[in-house]
Amino acid sequence: MSGPFSNITETIFADKSVLTESYQPETILERDEEIEAYSHALQDVLFGREPENVFLYGKAGLGKTAVTEYMMDELREEAATREQADDLHIHQINCNGRTLFMVVRQLVNRLLPEGASDFPKRGLGTGDAFDELYTQLDRIGGTHLFVIDEIDHLDDANTLLYELPRARANDHISESLVGIVGISNDYTFRQSLSPKVKDTLMETEISFSPYDAGELQTILRHRAETAFVDGVCDQSAIAKAAALAAQDMGNARQAIDFLRVGSEVAEREGDRHVIDDHIERARTLVQRGRLQNKIRDQTQHGQYILEAIATLAKENELPARSKEIQTVYETVADAHGASPLTTLKSVQDHLSDLHMLGFLIRHEQNQGRSGGQYYEYELDLDPDIIVQTRQKIVEQTS
């Protein structure tokens, strides 16, 4: 008796993993200038000197993390051959969804000797965690690079970026050297830092700009050589995926997703060649999936507000003012057993953030002396995507 998989005997993929987000390429393409700036910023490590702080800026999918992984591997390998270089220790952490205490505690736990008890979750404060971090740094010695991804998501980045770079100057450490590599999706992140932190950092800034269509084609062709069985993927399909991504976000991750999903469409339909039409159809699927992920990334109350606006959209009640949205939002929050935000200003702040993220269209209204100035909001995406995503989230958490 044949099973549901018995007829699946062929695939157009030779190595599909190179089209996944987790794949780390051995060769970094189209980022030569950024790599050169990076290498100059970190060269002091090779001579046993205190490393410069480095900050990388750019939207998601522009190669910041991939370049950093590559540079850390290369630096680690090169430092091991240099007599002047100290032992190099690289600590990578992502700040998304973490408080400052959680970040410092996690770093401490990674540095503790084998068999030691973890730093406690409760009972001690952030200052205690920093003290233990300094103790462990000096116990180990050498050069320590802290690679801090999504640092713009950290609730108290000022404290972290003041403490670590000044640890030696403030006599917290004497047997180790410390440097920071900060990675941010927010080009304006530095503007939010306090003046004393800006003066302390003295960092090298490296900005990652969007890829153009030609650069994305180069990246996709290189991936396609390994990903597909020979002759499967048309060059025009690669050009199509590159062009669509360049027109949208200039994002390599998006271009690779277009190529992967388009190939999956072709394989699902029994086609042995990936062509332009498959890529075009993949665009809708990829964009829908990315929207769902963006919705999931919002705070709990941000999601409730989106759900409220989707409700108003399905009832043809948009555009709407913030007060009208607040009323529906409170009903949504109550339905989910949550206490709603108590002030209109809090709701307006969320609406402003959702507008900046591209979820909402905002219209400024001016009614003169009689009505004053105010904003009205409407959705800039299909409300069904919000409703379906929220339903899945609720099902997964219930």
Rank of each mutant, 00 (worst) to 15 (best):
L137P: 10
C95I: 06
E317D: 07
R268P: 05
K392S: 11
T159L: 14
G250C: 08
L291F: 11
P4S: 13
D384S: 15
Q247M: 09
V108Y: 09
S39A: 13
L381D: 00
G141E: 07
L133A: 10
F101Q: 04
A242T: 07
L285Q: 14
Q348V: 07
M356S: 14
G123C: 10
T389D: 04
S339V: 12
S174N: 13
G63D: 01
V54E: 03
R288C: 07
V328N: 01
D155M: 06
A213P: 08
H278Y: 07
E21I: 09
A255W: 12
T200A: 15
D382R: 04
Y187L: 14
D44S: 15
D380W: 03
R369E: 15
R122G: 04
F130E: 09
H336M: 06
I180G: 01
E33I: 14
T226I: 13
A308K: 05
S17W: 01
R139Y: 11
L201H: 02
T65K: 00
D118P: 11
I151Y: 02
P340C: 10
A308R: 02
G302K: 02
M202G: 11
Q106H: 14
D199H: 08
A167T: 06
P195L: 09
P340V: 01
Q388D: 14
S236Q: 12
Q217I: 04
V67M: 03
E264T: 13
T143Y: 02
E150K: 04
H363S: 13
I12K: 07
F13Y: 15
G58S: 08
D87G: 06
I256A: 06
L46I: 03
R321P: 13
V274I: 13
I219D: 08
T389Y: 03
N316G: 09
K64G: 01
T143M: 00
H40C: 08
G372E: 00
I173S: 05
E50D: 08
S322H: 00
I393T: 09
L306V: 07
R268Y: 15
T331I: 14
P165H: 09
V18K: 04
V347C: 05
A169L: 11
R288K: 14
N96A: 15
L177S: 06
V387T: 10
Y162G: 02
Q84S: 12
L259C: 08
Q191G: 05
I219N: 08
G270W: 08
S117C: 13
A79W: 01
K392C: 06
L193N: 05
A41S: 12
L285E: 15
L133Q: 04
I183K: 05
V229Q: 08
L161H: 02
I279F: 03
Q106G: 10
L100Y: 10
E315P: 00
A129W: 00
Y57N: 01
P319V: 03
E364F: 07
Y70F: 15
E77N: 00
V265T: 00
G250R: 08
A116L: 06
A335L: 13
